[in-house]
Write a protein that binds this DNA or RNA. Structure first.
Lengths: 207, 207
DNA sequence: TAGATTGTTAATCGATTAACAATC
DNA sequence: TAGATTGTTAATCGATTAACAATC
């Protein structure tokens, strides 16, 4: 399972961006694209596009460029988004319930298939086609449904404890919206989305 | 107004993180902190902490460290979050309304003071203490209320057009949740929060 | 074939880390 | 004073970009 840990995180993020741009080109029925064009659409250098792809193999035709849909499907395979991703969400508060109903995920083929909370008033209620479950069922449901990624939108005070529980179930990939640095073992990957930090660092650039 | 454009974006983001960690230390009544301790709390090298701060001046006491609350207030001054930030939000859909009621912003002292939509059914309705306004009033309200930052949560198809309108009002800082690269003049700063890209790049690390 | 663009190596650039004199 | 930690310069590391032979 230990996949090439040595590929820079920035490369993986750009791969996702390439994938989306290629999707847009596909919709427009564009057949071919060069690294130069792809780079321009994303604001990155053409050499970087080629180098990013070179980490994973050879996908282009010298003198020609890349076949749009072929490249896209290969990138999706690399990212493993060539199949439905099984996502669970913990903490159905403001942000959590917004993410549950966020159509942007569905558009990209990402489906949240389970949601958990500890609030008795929420448990059992239906939200965007899924029934909110008691967090006590976390391990059972994660295993039954084969959930691979957990989105964390719980209160700060509970975040570390719940993270520990999540890791105990065998989950290794977490998207954390809670403004706290989680302590996790090396093999667990946490990506942080910190809305306040985004605002605060934008503030510096206010004219 | 042209502030030091040459300070790396990563430094500004870390500054926001330092600020939050210092806030937590303040709450715990910790008086002093060294660059080593601060670095450990954030997973960065102590030399980096010192170097980041050195961009802006000398804040420490050799042989001693930094006074927690003094350092924090100086960082807040640099980031200009030592005063209430005036934020407007455009697009009161799922994500937009979640951000309106997101308590995390308020906790950090960031207040969304205006929200806009073009849906007649939403306009005039109250949401988290603010009345949703017609987007036709964008320029007027931004100027009247002195809004400095715009959060964009509109549908993809309208994002570029609305961005153009926003820029026409004189706004130069945008937090964009719409999964599209916005075309803006050089003096405008756009930060992107792209939830699908976060999921897609996490997918690569699924075991 | 001539033209174009890839894949890849070498050069450059920038950011991170180490080291240490200055100093509290 | 001795010990500790800053601020800053120099060394290292890694990522980006340029250049070009290979090749369609």
């Amino acid at each position: 399972m230990g996949r090439n840990q040595d590929i820079p995180k920035a490369v993986i993020k750009r791969l996702s961006l390439y994938s989306r741009v290629l999707q847009n080109l596909e919709i427009k029925n564009v057949q071919k694209v060069s690294s130069k064009e792809l780079g321009e659409l994303l604001g990155v250098n053409s050499a970087q596009v080629r180098k990013d792809l070179a980490y994973f193999g050879q996908f282009g035709v010298p003198g020609f460029g890349y076949y749009v849909s072929e490249l896209r499907s290969k990138i999706k395979k690399i990212l493993r988004t060539d199949r439905p991703l099984k996502i669970g969400l913990i903490g159905v508060g403001n942000l959590g319930s917004a993410l549950l109903s966020y159509t942007g995920f569905k558009k990209q083929g990402f489906h949240i298939i389970a949601a958990f909370d500890n609030d008795k008033r929420k448990i059992g209620k239906k939200h965007s086609d899924i029934i909110i479950q008691d967090i006590a069922n976390l391990e059972k449901t994660i295993k039954e449904k084969g959930i691979e990624i957990i989105i964390l939108t719980v209160p700060v005070e509970k975040a570390q404890e719940i993270t520990n529980n999540v890791i105990d179930t065998g989950i290794t990939t977490i998207l954390n919206f809670v403004p706290i640095r989680l302590i996790v073992p090396d093999y667990v990957r946490v990506h942080y989305v910190d809305l306040s930090i985004e605002i605060e660092s934008l503030s510096y650039y206010v004219k």
